[in-house]
């Protein structure tokens, strides 16, 4: 997936433009189905930076529910999240929290 270049006023450039990366694991039992995918896109869309999500095969736009739901990530799947642009680190924190701590407000698998 090609990441479009971000327009940024010159003076803020140093402070806010950066690239962050992290790895998350899907922990809720039902995986990244429609509603979690929507929550992910909702959170990602609150930030100006680009959000790219990858599994082993694909890189997709984290702000597109179509592409996110095509990842079809089930419980236990590892995903890489990359943010690029304004507030990149806040974005990645918020997304990591949604996936791993809030678990999309859903339950983990029963033992």
């Amino acid at each position: 997936m090609k990441t479009p270049t971000l327009k940024m006023p010159a003076e803020k450039k140093d402070l806010e433009k950066k690239i962050c990366e992290t790895e998350v694991v899907i922990k809720n039992a039902d995986g990244l189905h429609m509603r979690p995918a929507m929550q992910f896109v909702d959170v990602a869309s609150q930030f100006e930076c680009d959000v790219t999500v990858s599994n082993i095969e694909n890189d997709v736009d984290g702000k597109s529910i179509m592409q996110m739901s095509m990842l079809a990530a089930t419980c236990g799947t590892k995903l890489k999240i990359k943010t690029d642009g304004k507030n990149a680190s806040e974005a990645i924190e918020a997304l990591k929290e949604l996936v791993e701590i809030k678990m999309f407000d859903e339950a983990p698998p029963e033992e």
Partner: peptide
């Protein structure tokens, strides 16, 4: 409501 919210997300998906 949740289902509709998902549908709305699709309908607003620029890449789609």
């Amino acid at each position: 409501k949740d289902i509709f919210a998902v549908h709305l997300r699709f309908l607003r998906d620029r890449s789609l």
